[in-house]
Design a protein around this nucleic acid. Structure first.
Lengths: 351, 351
DNA sequence: ATGAAAGCGCTAACAG
DNA sequence: CTGTTAGCGCTTTCAT
């Protein structure tokens, strides 16, 4: 059979053993670094391996209980600047650590997610990074049961105390709201994210807190429900624009919705930021490419990806050290002032 | 040892065998579909597998000569809209075919690319898609030698007759140039891609051909060397803008460079498209997000990714059928008219 | 410090 | 049609 396409020609650990005149398992030890191997022997083996162009077979290694140096990454999809940035950070850090990357999209095998996670943890990955906003808890319990290393990105999981990395959502929203208030705005429309997502809640709370701290009355009718996607932002903004008197600023819980809001505002014949200011959250690449450029709260997405990788590798390579390892890393957000916010029109100055 | 984190709890083919009261290999056969298994037996096995929550171990299967249903994808990096679109298409099609995806970035292990490809082909993937502009030939010979399925995207390989998918680069550039000529432009600056890349050459040729076919004299000094990246486009445009008389249009060999060119033009205090038209190639997402929106030649990037997958799966699943299989698929480009091109200013009408 | 040997879970002949 | 039996290439005890 030709099914052995990946085998026939390949140089195995046995070839290296022959070439270097030592045994089978000594080669394995030498190749894997540590373990008691005489310096000379090791050098001999390494030289032979190099000469023969030996490359370890990941499958075999994994099957025999070793590591594959493959990290899994589960994301909803790639069609979203937000995810893309995190993925870049993940990829970079993975490369640096000399691991490889398996990319999983949740689109796959919908409806059988439990089994899906099971498949992943039964696949070649040594561990997995989850960037999945609405992850079911069963996922995590399955992972836990198998002692399979994982880390959550931008998603908390109060019950299980999972390792995770996120950003200062509350503070970011607070800062942004304060910024708007300092600009003179009093009627600040707020577009929420999905209520089921903790970061969405935190941002809303930050907004409310800033209002309260600066003597601006919270107005429930200035809150519009969003879903983190552009069309949702558009619809929410439309609703907000009907509010009388019209809000002088709109703060969207993420950039994608802010983009939708900008479109809705323009479609009403209004100018940004002259008539109405718009502020986003995330700082995805598009934020600086639209016109006017979007003022937004920057999440260090790429860095979040990087940190996630290091948290995961820590678990993979030092399973013993788990208790002392960092369980949660929260990175700072930062307001990026661009062009979509301005002082409130003087006609509106009374507040 | 705990190295067996992925094993201990797991239900194997053996458990399924016990549960369903048949043997080891019968389970394997039933699970793998075909092979002569009595309907009743198969159902029994499937039921048992389902009940036990059995998930195949990819490593073991691969080691034993089976398929992993993993497809490798090698790209330069993710920081490029062009690649991103292709990757999305790849991911989608892979999901549809029920495969998984390993993502490799060339950034890794630079300087040892030969060995890198070797590692990939020795990894879990059943085959690999290469979106690597300047791939060394050794890569391909190595793949060939191992009879490892692969397909090239947007990259030709005349010597080896590799399976590949690309777009009508020549025609796309021809159409774009003609469009500009029809708009009255006669001094059309052209920013090239990397000369080592065939598609860059084809685009240049398409440009020249359109000029020739429409009686516009080719002017070598209207050609500026680019590298497919934004800063290179910026620099090339700067050079072009010094040309006397100034070109009335600039055609960049890809959108990234067109974006750079737009910036250079604005930095000279010139208006797009009033003073000078700009045209790109690719239609990356950013093209429709900049202001003014970029008129460009659309490559069906996502579809290219999809086709690449199907070409690869064809090889993986029907290794016998190889000779008859499609070796090259070329998809049509299409001019997308947006806002960055206008008729030549009347003052320039003489040509 | 090194060799021998036992699997890891599965596929694929090979016999019935 | 189904059971038996070799390995796939490697890590890891267990001896030595």
């Amino acid at each position: 059979m030709d099914s052995s396409r990946k085998k026939s020609t390949r140089v195995t650990i046995l070839d290296v053993a022959r070439e270097s005149g030592v045994s089978y398992s000594t080669v394995s030890r030498a190749l894997n670094g540590f373990d008691f191997v005489k310096g000379a022997t090791r050098d001999k083996v390494l030289a032979a391996a190099e000469k023969l162009g030996y490359v370890a077979n990941v499958q075999a290694r994994s099957l025999a209980g070793g590591k594959t140096r493959i990290i899994g990454l589960l994301v909803p999809g790639l069609d979203n600047g937000y995810i893309g940035e995190i993925v870049r950070g993940v990829d970079e850090e993975i490369a640096k650590a000399n691991y490889d990357l398996m990319l999983y999209t949740t689109r796959r095998r919908v409806g059988r997610e439990a089994m899906y996670i099971d498949a992943i943890s039964n696949g070649p990955s040594d561990g997995i990074i989850l960037i999945v906003p609405l992850l079911e808890r069963e996922y995590l319990t399955a992972l836990r049961e198998h002692h399979f290393p994982y880390v959550l990105v931008d998603q908390i999981d109060p019950q299980m105390h999972s390792p995770m990395v996120d950003a200062t959502n509350w503070q970011g929203a607070y800062d942004a709201t304060k910024y708007l208030i300092d600009l003179g705005h009093r009627r600040i429309g707020f577009i929420t994210g999905l209520r089921a997502i903790q970061s969405a809640l935190d941002r809303l709370d930050g907004y409310k807190a800033a209002l309260a701290d600066h003597g601006v009355r919270f107005d429930e009718t200035l809150i519009a429900e969003g879903d983190f996607f552009t069309p949702g932002g558009y619809a929410a903004a439309q609703k907000l624009l009907k509010h009388k008197p019209r809000p002088t600023a709109v703060f969207a819980s993420n950039d994608l919705m802010a983009l939708g809001a900008m479109q809705a505002i323009r479609d009403q014949g209004l100018e940004i930021p002259e008539d109405i200011s718009v502020l986003g959250f995330d700082d995805i690449p598009q934020a600086s490419m639209v016109h006017p450029q979007l003022t937004t709260v920057r999440q260090p997405l790429e860095q979040m990806g990087r940190v996630a990788v290091s948290l995961l590798i820590e678990q993979i390579e030092r399973p013993d050290n788990l208790e002392r390892a960092a369980r949660r890393v929260t990175l700072a957000t930062r307001l990026i002032e661009r062009e979509s916010c301005a002082a409130v029109p003087t006609s509106d100055m009374k507040g």
